[in-house]
């Protein structure tokens, strides 16, 4: 293949710069020794990171977010796996409409999901708003994502592998544990990581459905109003950015590698 630097390639590179430049400002200014994010840059400092780790409200919000994200990722992946298995291995009459409903939270503006859940929680059931209600909201948007990830993983899944297992003497449950589960594993881990990041970053549902306990994005949003706290906010943003980037890279590699290895190469 000849290496061509045509217009399209240049566009591709410019596009990446456009995609990343604004976000990369956060880490740059987070270590800048100034209280406003303006050029020229001043000296290098990690002061803001020091403020960050010494802020009790932030740490409390972080803990809340982690608890919610872990719970949400496990529960959503379980629901996603069941649904993905149901869809990929049976020809379901009425599958189209059912799938559309499950995938709806991907398109419906989250403010609608948020206010609808708020109405249900507060005015129909009169349940107090806690981290539980936040988690419920996050499960609603994570299940379709999880299902999509797992469906693409299970779609290439060869039914005859399970039949082979049954044929070799394993019952339904053992077949699941010895064949289905390990083969779906990369997809499951990818789904767990993805749901974890979604929940960790989600703001709108969390804002409407949380009570006194803040999650990290709510805390962050609150900080944005105070210009004097900008450095710490930048530091926090940078940290979130780095952590979620690492998780995403890891889960993407896992997901894509996983998809490739299902195809038998010998045939």
């Amino acid at each position: 293949m000849s290496k061509r630097f045509d217009l399209l390639t240049i566009y591709g590179i410019v596009f990446l710069v456009f995609l990343y430049a604004p976000v990369l400002l956060l880490p740059v200014f987070s270590v800048n020794d100034a209280t406003v994010a303006i050029f020229p840059l001043k000296g290098f400092t990690l002061k803001a990171y020091g403020q960050m780790v010494n802020n009790p409200a932030l740490l409390a919000a972080l803990k809340n977010s982690l608890v919610v994200a872990v719970g949400v990722s496990v529960v959503s992946t379980a629901f996603g796996l069941l649904a993905a298995m149901g869809v990929t291995r049976y020809k379901l009459p009425g599958q189209g409409p059912v799938m559309s409903v499950i995938m709806l939270p991907l398109v419906v503006p989250s403010i609608i999901l948020a206010v609808a859940l708020l109405v249900l929680v507060r005015q129909v059931f009169d349940i107090p708003l806690t981290l539980w209600t936040v988690a419920a909201g996050h499960i609603l948007i994570c299940v379709p994502f999880s299902m999509m990830v797992l469906m693409s993983r299970l779609e290439g899944f060869d039914r005859s592998l399970e039949e082979a297992s049954a044929d070799l003497g394993e019952s339904g449950w053992m077949t699941f544990w010895r064949v289905t589960f390990p083969i779906a594993m990369p997809g499951i881990v990818a789904s767990l990581l993805m749901c974890f990041t979604i929940s960790l970053d989600e703001y709108v549902l969390a804002f409407f459905l949380s009570g006194l306990d803040q999650t990290l994005p709510i805390f962050l949003y609150g900080q944005l109003r105070f210009p004097q706290r900008l450095p710490m906010t930048l530091a926090l943003g940078t940290t979130i950015l780095i952590v979620s980037t690492i998780i995403v890279i890891f889960s993407e590699i896992l997901r894509r590698r996983g998809v490739q290895s299902t195809k038998p190469t010998g045939l």
């Binding site: 604004p22 976000v23 994010a37 994005p217 944005l224 906010t233 943003g237 979130i240 998780i247 995403v248």
Partner: peptide, 20 residues
């Protein structure tokens, strides 16, 4: 993966970046 990362990293932070 380069295209995928921004999808999953905080929406709020990207808006914040534009504010800056």
């Amino acid at each position: 993966i380069l295209i995928t990362i921004p999808i999953w990293t905080s929406y709020l932070l990207r808006v914040f970046a534009w504010k800056i």
